[in-house]
Design a protein around this nucleic acid. Sequence first.
DNA 1: ACGATTTATCTAATGTGATTAGATCATAAT
DNA 2: ATTATGATCTAATCACATTAGATAAATCGT
Lengths: 188, 188
Amino acid sequence: MAGRVGLDKQSVVEAAAKMADERGLQRVTLSALADSLGVRTPSLYHYIDGSDGLRRELALYGLRGLGMGLQWAAVGKQTDQAIEAMFLSYRAFAREHPGVYEVTLRAPDPLDEELRSASQRVVDTVLAVLEPYRLSPDDAIHVVRSFRATAHGFVALEAAGAFGLPLSPEQSYRRLIAVFLNGLRMLE
Amino acid sequence: MAGRVGLDKQSVVEAAAKMADERGLQRVTLSALADSLGVRTPSLYHYIDGSDGLRRELALYGLRGLGMGLQWAAVGKQTDQAIEAMFLSYRAFAREHPGVYEVTLRAPDPLDEELRSASQRVVDTVLAVLEPYRLSPDDAIHVVRSFRATAHGFVALEAAGAFGLPLSPEQSYRRLIAVFLNGLRMLE
DNA sequence: ACGATTTATCTAATGTGATTAGATCATAAT
DNA sequence: ATTATGATCTAATCACATTAGATAAATCGT
């Protein structure tokens, strides 16, 4: 009998995140997670609210990481350079944390204040970068949505292995960014 | 005892598709599907290869529907109008078939010839529409990837409920399409 | 230092879903 | 009718999630 193991919510979530990124989100079962922590499955219920609760924690963890990444990427940059940096940062995060990234998009309970605010940080960062374009408030939101759609779409297709051909995804992404920035220019 | 029910693969897949669209993909269990067909769970194994097999059939079904939709949308249209029509058709399919659409993107076994070819039809349709832009072969593929990324990204965010604000997704999508088409113009 | 409280962890039990093996029974073919 | 085929079933097993309640380790007040 190992006695107390000394877990806490953070270490559980981090172990789950690591497992999600290394083995794939679907293989993160409470069973496997408990094993990897040297504990029985029901013990996890002291830290997380079951399987759905763990997902939610992972989503929060992911959204925060993504938001921080975007914010850092935009530091000291302006307009097109800032947007490009955010695009690159977005993809980098998704590639480094495929399992965690995958869960960030699922099931955002509109009443979940923490999730909402982590999500808002992403939006606000993009909005801040759009400042110098002097868009109307509505237009700015349309563009934020477009940014997220564009970045997410590429990253999701890439993660799903949808790009089979022997043509660099790197380059495709740069092209996509160029298309986006060119397109933006017409709105100014 | 009901005796023979008279199922076949197609009716099983179609029932699963309906269930996925109406109740959500994750609620399509072999159990629930068997129930809805008036049959015991193991009976389904005569038509599909377990849970993963069913997913694969759904993905194929979805890709074919999506491909047909895109092709129809582009009939009789050219350049920007054709691309816009494909964008609208893409979103329409995803909204009409949320459960089926969701599965089209997952786990494309590269050795699965049927899946590959259904997927290729989507690519080929977009490539055909790009013809008049006279892009290099590589550029054309970059643009196809960009199209799919853009359309998928928007549609996935929308389905995930990521657009919380009281601003029309319809309009956002039209803006996104405009940005894309504007961006394309610079490549010509 | 000691008993009481708290709490981290456990065992046991239940439920749902997937899957396999092999039996049964309806239909079709002869 | 007889047999062969195959669609469907029952029974059994397994993995995972979840809840209830027991146990034992740590902590706290004295």
